[in-house]
Design a binder for these strands. Sequence first.
DNA 1: TATTGTGTGTCAGGATGCTGACATGAGTCA
DNA 2: TGACTCATGTCAGCATCCTGACACACAATA
Lengths: 152, 152
Amino acid sequence: MSQEEKVGDLAESVGYLLKQAATALHASMDAVLRPQGLTVSQYSVLELLGHEPEQSNADLARGAFVTRQSMNEVLRGLQERGLVARADVAEHGRARPTRLTPAGHAALGGASAAVARVEKRMLSPLPPAEHAGLLAQLVACRDALTGEDAAR
Amino acid sequence: MSQEEKVGDLAESVGYLLKQAATALHASMDAVLRPQGLTVSQYSVLELLGHEPEQSNADLARGAFVTRQSMNEVLRGLQERGLVARADVAEHGRARPTRLTPAGHAALGGASAAVARVEKRMLSPLPPAEHAGLLAQLVACRDALTGEDAAR
DNA sequence: TATTGTGTGTCAGGATGCTGACATGAGTCA
DNA sequence: TGACTCATGTCAGCATCCTGACACACAATA
């Protein structure tokens, strides 16, 4: 009756392992990005803008899983260092699109290479044939949680 | 030559998806734990103590992937609410083992059931046969990153 | 015995992210 | 036109977690 009603052995909990793996990845990324003068959050913004320029503060916040307020702070730091540029006046609503400066592109290049090496090391124990499967499983898990809201 | 030297499409980045899945899980856990008056960190401590009682502050910090200082704060909150109890004097070194109170056991019961439902929902799109494989892959990724330190 | 090293608990200060709140600009509709 | 709704940017305050530092307890060793 009450076999599956609570969290079992932690070593067999996918949630617990998911947290461990994500924490390890964040720590490894931080270790390679710090020497380049970037935080993980700052790198995330550069990567997002590298793939899709002219995104607003709110767009970037959604892409990096943080609030607009937090992203505002990150953007301010990047702007002061000259890695990104924001339009002074909004063209449409209140949104002021952001884009990479040449210095931002350069910083992204080195950072992206370093992060790619981290990701490669993370996946190194898995046979390449399993990479796509892991990706699909993570997508499925994410969608299962975000699809219908959180409660219940 | 330079095909794999930087992060590619974000939708195909295991690291990006890992972060998304972990963030979604954390948010879902928070949504079900808040109504019970617990934070995710507090729940983690209760769960750890439920599986292995008499752990010290430092033990719990390692188990929850936070610093001793942060865990100290969490324990203080749980102690004030009467969910855990710590020995007043250390028996061996400076370590003061912590254990669940009856109220702590009760709180853990409800919280663990709620979290188990979240985890079940997260895994619901995957055939049960794939669960063990996902778990093993996450373990492998974690170990690949934590085995030899971070840098390089 | 005295020294060194390791593990632990705790205080102080700072960095980061969040919730709450408000004002602004644009679209929708009576 | 005017009221309403929605998305955005930003300010303020708070919560959480971190790094740095220090004192204490024990074990190992010369």
